[in-house]
């Protein structure tokens, strides 16, 4: 666009600005006007993000209970943090969360990338299958949790039937067994969210220019070399972004698991966010749960930052 055209546009915009507004704005610098425009957003951000965060940090050093408004709020220093770091149960919840996050990511990346490679071949009916594969992702996690309890039902569920049919295992109690329950939630999450990884990988695959493969052909590169030196590096930023989003989501996984296992059997699938909800809104240990929330926040934030740095390195 030429300078003249820009001036023309600016002139038109100035003429169309209501006179009342012109009078009010007169005398304000560009910087002041800019601040005026972003002020509502900044205010909202402070009110609903920053202030609660600071307030949560403050509460984490107190004995506050939200269901006892008349109770004296005492500053108890780092006691909540000491209790959390000294609690075997909390470490158990964090281990369960790590197990869930790591395995869902590993499995979903492998299957998601594989599906993307398959769909990218543009075979007949590829669009139809893409849509079919995407369906689970569009469902509500709570609904998915509920209906998978029926699928997993040892006597009447289809999952147990299929496994028994092929492996002769008898009625398989996926949700009630300590060994199988953690895998039961991984399977459901994989079923639901692999399409997400697939779709981002597919976007990466479709962004690779054909001439790279043509050049590789000329250089007599084999399929593995093309995958290793062209496909993977080009898709990796997309894949890493997908893992970042899903990793954060799964770190705070709540609804699907609550509906599926309620954190059981015992505390086998009690993820950190489920325990956090119990502490905050069932036991009403607000101070304690604030401390736990701060620890989880710092963990996710820290890991997220490290990951983003790695992502930038891959991109560069």
């Amino acid at each position: 666009m030429t300078t003249g055209a820009i001036d023309n546009l600016a002139d038109k915009a100035a003429k169309s600005t209501p006179f009342g507004m012109v009078r009010r704005m007169r005398g304000l610098s560009d910087r002041a006007i800019a601040w005026l425009f972003i002020a509502p957003t900044v205010f909202l951000l402070l009110a609903i993000n920053i202030f609660p965060l600071i307030w949560t940090v403050y509460l984490s050093f107190t004995n506050f209970r939200a269901n006892q408004p008349g109770r004296e709020v005492r500053w108890i220093g780092t006691r909540n943090y000491e209790r959390i770091f000294g609690s075997e149960d909390i470490w158990g919840y964090l281990q369960a969360t790590a197990h869930f996050v790591v395995w869902t990511m590993v499995i979903q990346v492998i299957i998601g990338f594989g599906l993307a490679l398959l769909i990218n071949r543009n075979f007949r009916g590829a669009s139809f299958w893409t849509t079919v594969i995407l369906i689970p992702m569009m469902l509500s996690p709570a609904v998915v949790g509920v209906f998978w309890t029926y699928i997993y039902q040892p006597q009447t569920g289809i999952f147990s039937y299929i496994i028994d049919f092929f492996a002769n295992t008898g009625a398989l109690d996926m949700i009630g067994s300590v060994g199988l329950a953690p895998w039961s939630i991984i399977i459901v999450d994989t079923w639901m969210w692999t399409p997400y990884i697939m779709i981002l990988c597919l976007a990466g695959l479709r962004s690779i220019p054909d001439y790279l493969y043509e050049a590789a052909e000329i250089d007599r590169a084999n399929a593995l070399q093309k995958f290793w030196y062209i496909t993977l590096p080009r898709v990796l930023p997309f894949l890493m972004l997908a893992v970042l989003f899903r990793g954060i989501e799964n770190f705070k996984m709540f609804d699907m698991v609550v509906e599926l296992t309620s954190g059981g059997p015992g505390s086998t699938t009690e993820l950190a966010s489920i325990n956090l909800k119990r502490e905050a809104f069932e036991k009403w240990r607000t101070g304690f749960s604030s401390a736990f929330a701060v620890i989880l926040f710092v963990t996710v934030f820290g890991l997220g930052n490290i990951y983003v740095k790695a992502l930038n390195r891959v991109k560069s």
């Binding site: 997993y152 040892p154 006597q155 009625a171 949700i175 009630g176 059981g264």
Partner: peptide, 10 residues
């Protein structure tokens, strides 16, 4: 352990 139907953990 002995006497409930299968899948009776919750």
């Amino acid at each position: 352990e002995c006497c409930v139907p299968p899948g009776y953990s919750d």
